[in-house]
Design a protein around this nucleic acid. Structure first.
Lengths: 191, 191
DNA sequence: CCATTTTTTGAACCGCCGTACAAGTTTTTC
DNA sequence: GAAAAACTTGTACGGCGGTTCAAAAAATGG
């Protein structure tokens, strides 16, 4: 049991260090040594845990996806109308824990590299499909059938675009303002 | 005069080769040898023209930006109402020449790497500011003042998000459909 | 405490990449 | 048609990055 604990703790630490290091240096140029330095460990020990740099990156991506999913589930629990659930999806994506420059930045780096890594591409596709079906399900209750797809594209692309812009921001983000802006867009699309 | 000609022709060829090579291998891992092979030249000759890999990447980015700008200017010429000009901005971004997987892909790679390259970041910031002011100028004529900013964010982020998704697509894109979808979003936002 | 397992690490290995450069080839110019 | 300029390339260099591995250190368990 304790055997597992240590491993999990170390994994978590190394993944957090990966997020910071990738944000600081960029996915394309970040080195194992950078990450190791950030984590206060050695490059060799990272390979001990994750097997390879690619394994580490994949694990980091999974970590971020899990974070997003739990944020979404949390929001859904307290929402009782289609509109509230739309707000909840937005709130999850722009939650305090997720909507930081570091994480938007690394998210975009993963997106950009997905086409060249089957693992990343698969994770990305799954996530996107899940969000899409959430949007569709709620919008169906709020709009005539022929308007659903356009509204869904407007909302989902808005989210992606907002993250993209956030990743390139040179100032700290304001999640509260982002959530308010997102709700205004939802309202605009539903009006 | 001919001196300049050869140089320009070669530049164009090398940049086109860069776009293809970056699309095929990914910005993070593409090598000078890859690009040279794609262009049917040697790595050394690329350095002769562009000085360095970074110089080549910057020139490629400039090339893409110029393409976008000319597409936009072309559309503006034949538009005579604010709504038409909004359509024109969309049409430019989803024009047949620009809205291809290769170019969306490389564009996203540049975005992702902009935070780590002052040159790229500057180009990106300029472009984004230009698009923003275009949107604002047209929307001001179509919406009450307090609705302009939300609509602008919805449209601009939609565009970015659509490109992002296009970059990750594993099928050829359909620019005609993309333009139609974009117009529907414009209509939705203006309604 | 000692034996065993787990974890950590420094150093070495292998390979590759960007760049410089000198030597060739082609084109231009007079 | 020869001198000069522009262009091209093979090669070599310096450096660095991911991975491996053997050996040390720490933790575990009886």
């Amino acid at each position: 049991m304790n055997r597992k604990r240590i491993r999990d703790i170390r994994n978590e630490e190394l993944i957090e260090a990966t997020i910071v290091a990738v944000h600081n240096h960029g996915y394309s140029v970040v080195t194992m040594a950078d990450i190791a330095r950030e984590a206060g460990a050695s490059a060799a020990s990272i390979n001990y845990y994750f097997g390879s740099k690619e394994g580490l990156m994949e694990a980091t991506m999974r970590h971020l996806l899990r974070k997003l999913r739990t944020a979404m589930i949390r929001g859904y629990k307290t929402s009782h109308s289609p509109t509230d659930r739309l707000y909840a999806v937005m709130d999850a994506n722009f939650s305090d824990q997720l909507f930081t420059v570091e994480q938007c930045s690394i998210w975009m780096q993963f997106w950009a590299n997905a086409p060249y890594s089957p693992h990343l591409a698969r994770l990305h596709r799954l996530n996107r499909a899940r969000v899409r079906s959430h949007f569709r399900a709620e919008l169906r209750h709020l709009l005539p059938a022929e308007g659903v797809e356009t509204a869904r594209q407007a909302l989902q692309n808005y989210m992606d675009g907002a993250w993209l812009q956030a990743a390139l921001s040179d100032q700290p983000l304001d999640p509260v303002a982002a959530r308010a802006a997102a709700r205004r867009v939802v309202d605009l699309v539903l009006s």
